[in-house]
Simulated assay, not measured.
Amino acid sequence: MSRDIRRVPVDFDWPLNKVWDGFLLPDELRLPPCPACEGMGWSPEAKLLQNRWYGKAPFRPEDRGSEPLTVETPGVRAFAERNVAHATWFYGEGEAAIVREAHRLSSMWNQQWCHHLNQADVDALVAAGRLMDFTHTWSREDGWQPKDPPHVPTAAEVNAWSLSGLGHDSINQSVVVHAELERQGLSDLCPNCNGAGEVGTDEQRATYEAWEPTAPPTGEGWQLWESVSEGSPISPVFGDREALIGWLTTDYSWGAQRTPLTREQAEAFVGLGHSIGSGVIASDGRHFSGEAAVAELRGGTP
């Protein structure tokens, strides 16, 4: 995801901020989605468990051997206090506001499997190399190292942790759902498409696989493109390098680069031909847009 300098014809007139058609797979080449799984590739049993994980299907903590959360649960109480303190204009103030928010949180989280794992779920995550905060220590010198003696967290530890921050990601969900289905002797793949999510013919698949993106035409012009999407122009076409640099130092503002570049930054950026991603955080904590970072990195600052 960066910005790139492209050489295009001087009279190239593709609309700004519109993805170049050659970068997009034509609709007629898209493979028909599997009607059984709606193109997702999951079995009905897997989809049900995924929905229970996120609270989109009926779930009871007791079914996983977990105690329902209450307004007195420490993690619930702490989260409610934080929410109220940060937005009294919305939640109100005082104990009544905290209890009301704690009730909302506990009711919501009691409907989600992700906050009520049992030990088998936790063991599956540990076996998959997840939950590193529990099983490893980290240092700048040695990176992640297994705890000695080894530590396998309890379900209670992990469930409390899930209330305190970002919690589980979609990888954890996939690991736990797969392990649960495996214990039940079931598959997580759609039986109709075997997990492919599509039901195209061999001929359709061959045509799909053979497609390759087509770059815009080349020429003597200079133009700035973004590749955050599939790729689109974000500047006029300039007749020479100097004109593009002049535009970058006077009129340019895009993404993290909210003000025009300095002359030094623009020359370094155009000279390299692309930005350093969308942005760079230097070792001293300073933040540079991907365009400005080119000059900084060449100078050895970050």
Rank of each mutant, 00 (worst) to 15 (best):
R130V: 08
G219Y: 00
H136V: 01
W14Y: 14
T201R: 11
P32F: 12
A179E: 01
G300I: 08
N51E: 03
N194Y: 11
V84A: 11
D188R: 03
T218L: 06
L125I: 04
S2P: 07
V176D: 11
L272K: 15
A293E: 03
L105P: 02
W161R: 12
A266M: 06
A210N: 13
G290V: 01
H136T: 04
A127M: 06
I276T: 13
R77I: 07
S2N: 15
E95T: 12
R298D: 14
G197Y: 11
W211E: 10
L163P: 00
Q112L: 09
R7V: 03
Q50A: 08
T154W: 14
C193S: 10
P58L: 13
W14M: 10
R104Y: 12
T249F: 11
G255H: 11
A243L: 14
S162V: 03
L125P: 14
A268H: 02
R104C: 04
A196V: 07
A96N: 14
R6N: 09
G165D: 09
A256N: 09
E212D: 13
E242R: 04
Q223C: 02
R258N: 14
T207R: 15
N159C: 13
H116G: 01
N17V: 09
E242Q: 15
V158F: 15
P32Q: 12
R60I: 00
R140V: 05
P61R: 00
A97N: 12
S275P: 01
P149S: 05
W247Y: 15
N192R: 02
P61W: 09
L69H: 10
Q145H: 05
E62Y: 15
A155T: 09
Y252S: 03
P213K: 13
C114S: 01
F269E: 03
K18G: 11
K56N: 09
S227N: 13
E291K: 08
Q173P: 08
N17R: 15
W53A: 05
M108S: 14
P302V: 01
T214D: 14
N194L: 06
I5W: 10
I5C: 01
D284E: 02
K56S: 06
W222I: 00
L272W: 07
Q184I: 04
P26G: 04
T250Y: 04
H136W: 08
N51K: 03
E93N: 07
R140M: 07
W225T: 02
G255R: 12
N83F: 13
T218I: 10
I171C: 10
R205H: 04
S170V: 10
A179I: 06
A102W: 15
D13G: 06
K18H: 14
L181I: 08
L224S: 11
K18D: 15
F134G: 13
V122T: 09
A96D: 15
S170G: 05
G75R: 01
L248A: 07
N118I: 02
E291P: 14
N118W: 07
G39R: 08
L186A: 02
G285F: 01
S289A: 02
S229H: 11
G165V: 07
A282M: 02
I234M: 13
V237C: 05
H86D: 09
